[in-house]
């Protein structure tokens, strides 16, 4: 296309369009979706006076309107940057245990737009879980994996959710997390934590495993550290604060550890931890 052509080819909400050379983003909005109040050009929200060039991708969104998958993806790309979004969208992450850690890690990864989440838990939501776990009162008695999938679908309907009501054992761990790029160990029981670590090291040594040990109580947040151990295993926690009578699991410190877990997983998916 010569530069003196009177029109340019762009995309408007994923559809090819031909518009007059010299139009700005506001002119495209006026022509295609005058009610739009979020204008995105090539993944970045921009003002109406932003000039357009051949090949630009424009997404026009009205605040409050339910976006399509393509529009939501354009918004996510705008928020996270194209390099982050494209890589997390291809990933499948396994969540071993959907309690305080697992539900919070899954919510963070769902908001990031991770392509698929395999949610595994054998338990049901109990009233005592609601002090720190990402469930609602009306979900008491529901299977945790299913309940978490319901909540994630409301946050980001374009994540593939794979809930599994299953108790993970040494024997089934490797099979349970087949085709996962990373696995988050989010159990409560220390023997189950150890067993998953051993099973993954033996059965899936190439799959990164992000584990947690020592998050109870309300000790300083900074004592919850991240370190790499045993090759492909990361360990998060203060290493000593076990849940016990008098030292409960409280939402803030569990969230600190879950945030570390989700960020380590993101860094692994982006190739920042190799």
């Amino acid at each position: 296309m010569s530069s003196d052509s009177p029109t340019i080819s762009i995309k408007v909400n994923e559809q090819p369009a031909r518009v007059a050379r010299g139009w700005d983003l506001g002119a495209v909005r006026d022509a295609y979706k005058p009610e739009a109040d979020i204008l995105i050009r090539n993944g970045c929200p921009q003002g109406a006076e932003s000039p357009l060039a051949e090949g630009d991708a424009v997404v026009l969104i009205r605040r409050g309107e339910q976006p399509t998958a393509e529009e939501l993806e354009a918004l996510m790309t705008a928020r996270h940057g194209p390099g982050v979004h494209a890589r997390v969208k291809r990933a499948r992450v396994g969540i071993a245990g959907c309690g305080g850690l697992g539900s919070a890690v899954a919510v963070a990864l769902g908001r990031l737009g991770v392509g698929a989440l395999r949610l595994v838990d054998f338990d049901v939501v109990e009233p005592s879980n609601l002090n720190r776990q990402q469930f609602f009162v009306d979900q008491i008695g529901c299977h945790k994996a299913q309940a978490l999938a319901q909540n994630l679908a409301r946050i980001n309907p374009y994540v593939a959710l794979e809930p599994l009501d299953r108790r993970i054992t040494v024997a089934n761990a490797a099979e349970t997390f087949e085709s996962c790029d990373v696995v988050a160990e989010c159990f409560d029981d220390p023997a189950a934590k150890r067993d998953l670590t051993v099973a993954m090291r033996r059965g899936r040594p190439a799959t990164p495993l992000v584990t947690v040990s020592g998050i109870a109580g309300y000790g300083p947040s900074d004592e919850i550290q991240v370190r790499r151990v045993l090759g492909n295993v990361w360990l998060i926690g203060d290493g000593v604060s076990a849940a016990a009578p008098g030292l409960g699991l409280l939402a803030p410190r569990v969230a600190v550890a879950a945030g570390h877990q989700a960020n380590v997983i993101l860094r692994i998916l982006l190739g920042e931890e190799s």
Binding site: G99, D188, D189, P190, K193, T197, A216, A242, A243, V254
Partner: peptide, 10 residues
Amino acid sequence: LEIVRFVGGG
């Protein structure tokens, strides 16, 4: 020797 110790809580 690599030693990882797990305590309960999640």
